[in-house]
Simulated scan of single mutants.
Amino acid sequence: MAGTETLRTYVQPWHCDEMGHMNVRHYLGMFDDAAFVLLAMIGHVTDENFGWADVQHTIRYLDEVPRGTAVVVTSELVKLGTKSMTVLHRMSDAASDSLRAEAETVTVYFDLKARKAAPIPEVYRTKLEAL
Rank of each mutant, 00 (worst) to 15 (best):
residue 46 T to K: 08
residue 47 D to N: 15
residue 47 D to S: 09
residue 47 D to T: 06
residue 47 D to L: 01
residue 48 E to L: 01
residue 48 E to V: 02
residue 48 E to W: 00
residue 48 E to K: 08
residue 48 E to C: 01
residue 49 N to D: 11
residue 49 N to K: 08
residue 49 N to R: 07
residue 49 N to T: 05
residue 49 N to M: 04
residue 50 F to C: 11
residue 50 F to E: 12
residue 51 G to I: 10
residue 51 G to M: 14
residue 51 G to K: 13
residue 51 G to V: 15
residue 51 G to D: 15
residue 52 W to E: 00
residue 52 W to T: 10
residue 52 W to I: 09
residue 52 W to D: 02
residue 53 A to Y: 11
residue 53 A to T: 14
residue 54 D to P: 13
residue 54 D to W: 06
residue 54 D to K: 08
residue 54 D to Y: 08
residue 55 V to C: 10
residue 55 V to R: 12
residue 55 V to K: 12
residue 56 Q to M: 09
residue 56 Q to P: 03
residue 56 Q to S: 13
residue 57 H to S: 03
residue 58 T to S: 09
residue 59 I to M: 02
residue 59 I to R: 01
residue 59 I to K: 04
residue 60 R to T: 07
residue 60 R to C: 06
residue 60 R to H: 08
residue 60 R to F: 02
residue 61 Y to V: 05
residue 61 Y to M: 07
residue 61 Y to F: 12
residue 62 L to Q: 12
residue 62 L to S: 06
residue 62 L to D: 07
residue 63 D to Q: 08
residue 63 D to P: 00
residue 63 D to M: 05
residue 63 D to A: 12
residue 64 E to I: 11
residue 64 E to W: 10
residue 64 E to K: 14
residue 65 V to M: 10
residue 65 V to I: 14
residue 66 P to F: 03
residue 66 P to T: 05
residue 66 P to M: 05
residue 66 P to C: 07
residue 66 P to S: 06
residue 67 R to S: 14
residue 67 R to A: 15
residue 67 R to I: 08
residue 67 R to F: 13
residue 68 G to L: 05
residue 68 G to H: 05
residue 68 G to M: 07
residue 68 G to W: 09
residue 68 G to N: 09
residue 69 T to R: 02
residue 69 T to G: 02
residue 69 T to N: 01
residue 70 A to E: 15
residue 71 V to A: 06
residue 71 V to C: 07
residue 71 V to T: 06
residue 71 V to I: 11
residue 72 V to Q: 12
residue 72 V to M: 06
residue 72 V to H: 08
residue 73 V to W: 04
residue 73 V to K: 00
residue 74 T to H: 10
residue 74 T to R: 13
residue 75 S to G: 03
residue 75 S to F: 05
residue 75 S to H: 04
residue 75 S to T: 11
residue 76 E to D: 15
residue 77 L to F: 15
residue 77 L to W: 14
residue 77 L to N: 15
residue 77 L to C: 14
residue 78 V to I: 13
residue 78 V to A: 12
residue 79 K to W: 04
residue 79 K to L: 06
residue 79 K to T: 07
residue 80 L to E: 03
residue 80 L to F: 02
residue 80 L to W: 01
residue 80 L to Y: 01
residue 81 G to A: 03
residue 81 G to H: 02
residue 81 G to V: 03
residue 82 T to C: 05
residue 82 T to A: 08
residue 82 T to E: 11
residue 82 T to N: 11
residue 82 T to G: 10
residue 83 K to A: 09
residue 83 K to N: 08
residue 84 S to I: 05
residue 84 S to W: 07
residue 85 M to H: 06
residue 85 M to R: 11
residue 85 M to K: 09
residue 86 T to P: 04
residue 86 T to Q: 07
residue 86 T to S: 08
residue 87 V to T: 01
residue 87 V to C: 00
residue 87 V to P: 00
residue 89 H to M: 06
residue 90 R to T: 03
residue 90 R to N: 00
residue 91 M to K: 04
residue 91 M to S: 00
residue 91 M to D: 00
